[in-house]
Amino acid sequence: MFRRSIILLIFAISVAAVGMFSLKHEVQSRKAKLDALHQDIVENQEVIRVLRAEWSFINQPAHIERLARKHLGFVPMQSHQIIRLEELKGKQLEIVKGSINEKRVR
């Protein structure tokens, strides 16, 4: 009786000890992972900042304008090219190569 309970107790203690150490180990490894992730996030944030600065730099209006003129043949929009949807009601439209031209305009 006495001996069995002692064995049981020792067994329980060793199970608890093993459990605790493995838990502690798990926590430690997760913490290391978390720290690595934090480090990663900060590094990524830094990279995003650089990219954002670069994005703003290449989006300088003068630069975009130059590219648009060179590669797309775009020019500043004229006021007669703008029309409201309501103004189109009941007007005859023709579609030329994907763009909508109102007859009156031409």
Partner: peptide, 9 residues
């Protein structure tokens, strides 16, 4: 929201 000034390391 276009970036005008930023600090980079």
């Amino acid at each position: 929201g276009i970036l005008l000034a930023t600090s980079l390391s």
